[in-house]
Write a protein that binds this DNA or RNA. Structure first.
Lengths: 147, 147
DNA sequence: CTCATTTCAGTTGCACTGAAATAA
DNA sequence: CTTATTTCAGTGAAACTGAAATGA
């Protein structure tokens, strides 16, 4: 597709590299999830539900960093597809409690495997030690900028 | 703002970490460039022009990874602000040759410094060696996924 | 009263697609 | 005839903003 190297000026900017890496990552992830008719937000929400069980929408927002208002829409779509249930919380009537359905549990387990493969494709050029280093450095960056 | 740690399931996904890092990076960059009334695409184009001098739009697209059609719009906006000129290429009449104006040269030099500060803020939690490692690993990832 | 939760309505920048017109 | 360049028109996911309604 594109010949012609990216400019050195941009290539030397960490923010640009991170962004280009994110574009590659998102393309691979979108492709993989798209095969299941889902998007990134859907998986993120289901992953949290698989990990924590029944969770309110506000809590889903915090655990995924997806905005509260976007959680609404994504949960709607998951509900339509029969992958989650949304029930009123009896102990706090402001809240909805979201739960994976059996179909949702099955789907997220399958997507876990699909996404594991995606990680492998994404990190293909790096050795296991380098992958670990990268993940560690990114985790520290992310922690620093989200606290 | 947000208490509540991100889910472990997501935190263990390199693609998720890269994405979160990109969100932080883009927020800082957008904030810095926004003060000058510009966006990321504008800087990327001007950085290439500063580095290479007069360049066609198709070549700008390749060097920035910005889509050809988006280059059109961004160059329009830079032209309106008097930061670049767009002249027909006499030797290939399909092409436009884009050049930085004196004001553009001045602006991009200023933004270079602003963005250098942004990189420092972005990488704040990492030591100089760690920054180098991160940049190196990301560069290899990006190279692998854009060739 | 203040704060948290859900929801709606809207915005913005970014990445991308498809196709037309022009010219190499 | 095929390919490259510019441009237009439009799409889509993602991240975000502001505010209303409800209830702790």
């Amino acid at each position: 597709m594109d010949k012609g190297e990216p400019a050195e000026r941009l290539h030397g900017l960490p923010s640009w590299l991170i962004n280009q890496a994110a574009i590659a990552a998102q393309r691979l992830v979108a492709e993989a999830l798209g095969a299941a008719g889902l998007r990134r937000y859907h998986y993120a929400l289901m992953a949290v539900l698989a990990e924590r069980g029944a969770t309110s929408q506000a809590e889903l927002s915090r655990r995924t960093t997806i905005d509260r208002s976007d959680v609404v829409g994504a949960v709607n779509e998951l509900e339509e597809r029969g992958l989650v249930r949304r029930d009123p919380d009896t102990s706090d009537r402001r809240r909805n409690v979201v739960t994976l359905t059996p179909a949702g549990t099955e789907t997220v387990a399958r997507l876990d495997r699909v996404l594991a493969d995606v990680q492998d494709t994404l990190l293909a050029p790096l050795s296991p030690e380098e992958r670990e280093t990268l993940v560690h450095l990114l985790a520290r960056l992310v922690a620093h900028h989200t606290h």
